[in-house]
């Protein structure tokens, strides 16, 4: 079935990375898939504000998610918990004993796949802050429509999320082929759909990483602390298969 914005089922919206949009944070990044935009800032490693947050052998990782409007609710709390667990896996916490690293995530435009976009923004902000990490784990969201026949939509928009039976948010460490997190909501799925979801996510996470890394390495060569423009849509992307609307990957 065709998608509203003309993408095929296994196509991401073009990922865009902007490093260091905030000048006063220790590290910051803005990440977008299409219209869905999230801004993340990292402060630290710094001294914890209260004594009981201090751990003698590692740093405490503190994640705060702010919604686009209003005050944080249960949904944001849940995203905070998920991001904290996800980032705890990648950050080498024992490198920074008795310190605290704060990650602040501000949703700025929500159009589906928000958890994945927030995960990517937070991860890139940590990279920008120069925090030691053992893996690069990018995130992607998938929507599954079960009827009339199972279809997997990569990176669904908000409208598509409403049409899907199940939503999966995945984070993968592509180089080690490790799943960092995956959470499903909605209808339960059988094992074959699960494995094809993981395969699709694996490919798209790698492509996201390529985009992000081309941005990071380009910035490393030029002046770091300058405001940076967004990455060229037709820039790097090794797996791209000649499509103007987005990145396409063969799945299955």
């Amino acid at each position: 079935m065709a998608r509203r914005d003309g993408r095929s089922a296994n196509q991401l919206r073009p990922p865009q990375v902007e490093l260091r949009p905030l000048q006063r944070a220790d590290g910051s990044a803005r990440f977008r898939f299409g219209d869905c935009t999230v801004l993340a800032a990292v402060y630290g490693p710094k001294e914890p504000r209260t004594r009981h947050r201090e751990l003698c052998d590692r740093c405490t990782l503190d994640v705060v998610v702010r919604p686009r409007v209003g005050i944080p609710g249960p949904q944001e709390r849940q995203m905070e918990a998920l991001l904290a667990r996800q980032l705890e896996y990648v950050v080498l916490a024992t490198e920074y004993p008795r310190t605290q690293i704060s990650v602040i995530v501000q949703m700025s435009c929500c159009d589906g796949s928000t958890a994945a976009v927030a995960g990517n923004a937070a991860h890139l902000a940590l990279l920008d802050a120069g925090v030691a990490m053992k893996a690069t784990a990018m995130c992607v969201a998938l929507g599954v429509k079960l009827s009339p026949e199972p279809v997997i939509w990569l990176d669904p928009t908000e409208l598509e999320e409403a049409q899907c039976d199940a939503l999966i948010s995945l984070s993968m460490d592509g180089s080690r082929n490790q799943l960092v997190s995956h959470i499903s909501s909605g209808a339960p799925l059988d094992a074959t759909i699960w494995s094809s979801c993981i395969e699709a996510a694996d490919k798209s996470c790698k492509a996201c990483l390529d985009t992000a890394f081309s941005r990071v390495s380009r910035d490393a060569g030029t002046a770091r602390r300058r405001h940076c423009g967004t990455v060229d849509r037709r820039g790097a992307g090794a797996v791209r298969k000649g499509s103007k609307r987005g990145w396409q990957f063969a799945t299955g």
Binding site: M172, S181, P188
Partner: peptide, 17 residues
């Protein structure tokens, strides 16, 4: 059918399921 809730921490993608 399955619902999966895996909140962080590495798991081998191929062997997992």
């Amino acid at each position: 059918r399955w619902l999966v809730f895996h909140q962080g921490g590495g798991a081998d993608a191929n062997r997992f399921l």
